[in-house]
Amino acid sequence: MSGQGFFVSFEGIDGSGKSTQARRLHDALHEQGRDVVLTREPGGSPGAEEIRRLVLEGDKDRWSAETEMLLFTAARRDHLERVIEPALAAGRVVICDRFADSTRMYQGLGRGDLRAAVDQLHAMMIRREPDMTVLVDIEPGVGLDRALARGGAEARFESFGEELQARMRAGFLALAEEFADRFVVIDGNRNVEDVAADVAQAVRVRLP
């Protein structure tokens, strides 16, 4: 457990349904009387939201992978200082839609061989992992279709296509093995209610 609170992150490829599941978990815990914060990355604090607009919009070649790594880490540091750490110190449950594992995948693996650099920067500037990470796993083609149909500001990353989605899925599953103590893998190829029930059960077991 991090501090006095409990930190849960949601990960998955684009269109996996992780954002929906993060909201559902927030609502379920709130109804149970838990003090819960729902946030997201990149973003979650005013400064980080400004960086979000820089990295998620525009042409897919707007930034190099190295520049993206630095921008995402800067956004995460501001988010950590202003939102996540104060909430955990107050004993709250923090639910975050993406955290450092997304940078390990999208910049560290998906756009170059930068995983070691991502980890070094994380160790220097962030120095915190979630207490629990829920990986919503889904077939890459299904996820991409959902993401493109949804549209919105994340279209820059979705434009990299199904090949990247497939690499990211394999990478996330490898991360789940690497960090098996904090990852729980949930089958996202089902209806929303069944996925939510499995997420709730998995989190219930680990919540203090």
Results as ranks from 00 to 15, higher is better:
Pro46His: 09
His79Pro: 03
Ile95Ser: 08
Gln120Phe: 05
Glu158Trp: 02
Ser64His: 09
Arg169Gly: 06
Phe160Lys: 15
Phe72Gly: 03
Glu81Asp: 13
Gln120Asp: 14
Leu88Asp: 06
Leu175Gln: 12
Leu148Gln: 14
Arg206Pro: 01
Glu49Lys: 13
Asp113Gln: 11
Arg206His: 07
Ala202Asn: 09
Glu41Thr: 01
Gly143Pro: 06
Ala87Gly: 07
Glu163Met: 02
Ala155Glu: 15
Met69Gly: 06
Pro46Phe: 05
Ala174Asn: 10
Ser16Leu: 07
Gly91Asp: 02
Thr103Asp: 05
Met125Lys: 12
Ala22Lys: 03
Gln4Leu: 13
Thr133Tyr: 01
Gln21His: 06
Glu158Thr: 10
Glu50Gln: 14
Glu158His: 14
Gly141His: 12
Ala123Asp: 14
Ala147Gln: 04
Cys96Ala: 06
Ala87Thr: 04
Tyr106Asn: 10
Arg204Pro: 00
Thr20Trp: 01
Phe179Trp: 11
Val195Cys: 09
Val199Met: 06
Ser16Glu: 04
Leu173Glu: 14
Ala90Pro: 00
Ala202Leu: 08
Leu114Gln: 08
Arg190Val: 08
Val94Gln: 07
Cys96His: 02
Ser64Val: 09
Val205Glu: 15
Ser19Asn: 07
Glu139Gln: 12
His30Val: 12
Val184Thr: 13
Ser9Ala: 15
Leu38His: 05
Glu66Val: 10
Met1Pro: 05
Leu56Glu: 11
Arg150Trp: 09
Gly12His: 05
Met125Asp: 12
Val118Cys: 15
Ala75Pro: 09
Arg40Thr: 07
Arg77Glu: 12
Gly188Leu: 09
Tyr106Leu: 09
Gln21Tyr: 00
Thr20Lys: 00
Arg156His: 11
Arg82Thr: 14
Ala197Asp: 12
Arg150Leu: 09
Gln120Lys: 07
Leu29Glu: 06
Ala166Arg: 15
Asp198Val: 06
Ile186Gln: 12
Thr67Gly: 03
Leu121Glu: 00
Ala155Phe: 02
Arg77Met: 12
Tyr106Trp: 10
Pro208Lys: 04
Phe183Leu: 08
Val195Trp: 00
Asp78Trp: 00
Ser102Tyr: 05
Arg182Asp: 02
Glu139Lys: 09
Gly141Gln: 09
Met124Lys: 10
Thr73Cys: 07
Gly188Cys: 06
Met125Ser: 14
Arg34His: 15
Ala166Tyr: 02
Met124Arg: 13
Thr39Ser: 11
His79Ile: 04
Ala90Cys: 00
Gly33Ala: 02
Phe6Lys: 00
Pro46Met: 06
Gly108His: 08
Met105Arg: 09
Gly151Leu: 05
Arg24Lys: 14
Val136Asp: 07
Gly58Trp: 06
Leu38Lys: 03
Ala100Met: 15
Gly91Val: 02
Gln32Trp: 04
Asp35Arg: 12
Phe99Trp: 12
Leu71Asn: 07
Val37Phe: 02
Leu88Gln: 07
Arg104Met: 14
Leu56Phe: 00
Arg77His: 06
Asp113Ser: 10
Asp14Trp: 06
Arg146Lys: 04
Asp14Gly: 10
Gln4Asp: 11
Arg146Ser: 10
Leu25Glu: 10
Gly12Phe: 04
Arg182Ile: 05
